[in-house]
């Protein structure tokens, strides 16, 4: 039932009962949504704490790339690319998982890169370092996506709660009061009419 249609409702006891039931449902829904909102806020705060590590990880990533660039410079293009081609690339998959009932896409590492064919310790160390940082970056990305999705859900719930609190519930209460007064008025009129007939 739209809010505009409230004013055209017939002023009857049936309507009053129906509206009272609706109001009760709206208030219950609002409190449930508020609880959910609190839960989401709690979850987001827990995740945000872990996001604070991002600048450090980014620095580590830049350092790892610089080290690899330096190695490429020292060993030459042909050797660098041929040795790097020995690494079996990792396998990643994007899965949708549920966090607090919100569907969140997450990157899952199915297989780590295999360096067993790279025997040069310098290459191996730098490649392993780079992968470690990439793993941390993937973890941060997952958290970031989760925070983004949870925030979107939170803002949606906030909108619904606000609309219930500021708009729907007050209007419903007003309509209930109006219909209640109308019914009381009609009852009084009926009472007076019956008294007149009795005289």
């Amino acid at each position: 039932m739209g809010l505009t249609s409230l004013r055209y409702l017939p002023a009857s006891r049936g309507t009053l009962l129906k509206l009272r039931r609706q109001l009760e449902l709206a208030k219950r829904g609002k409190s449930v949504l508020e609880m959910r909102r609190d839960q989401l806020v709690k979850e987001i705060f827990t995740l945000i704490d872990r996001l604070k590590e991002r600048p450090k990880i980014e620095e580590k990533y830049i350092k790892a790339l610089e080290d690899l660039s330096l190695l490429r410079l020292k060993r030459g293009e042909v050797e660098f690319f041929s040795i790097v081609s020995l690494v079996r690339p990792p396998v990643l998959e994007v899965l949708a998982i549920s966090i607090e009932g919100v569907s969140v896409p997450q990157i899952k590492i199915l297989r780590k890169p295999d360096y067993s064919l790279v025997k040069d310790p310098e290459y191996r160390t730098l490649l392993e370092n780079a992968w470690q940082v990439i793993e941390e970056l993937i973890e941060v990305t997952n958290i970031e996506i989760a925070v983004e999705k949870l925030c979107a859900q939170l803002s949606y719930i906030n909108r619904v709660v606000n609309s219930l609190e500021e708009n729907f519930i007050p209007k419903l209460e007003e309509t209930i009061r109006y219909i209640g007064e109308k019914i009381e008025e009609e009852m009084l009129e009926e009472f007076v009419r019956l008294k007149n007939i009795a005289r």
Binding site: V78, F81, S82, L86
Partner: peptide, 22 residues
């Protein structure tokens, strides 16, 4: 020799990409 070594490594890595050669 460096080209042949690079080729051997690319065979080990079973990469389709041909890679750089001198």
């Amino acid at each position: 020799i460096e080209n042949i070594k690079a080729k051997i490594r690319s065979i080990y890595g079973s990469r389709e990409k041909k890679g750089y050669l001198y």
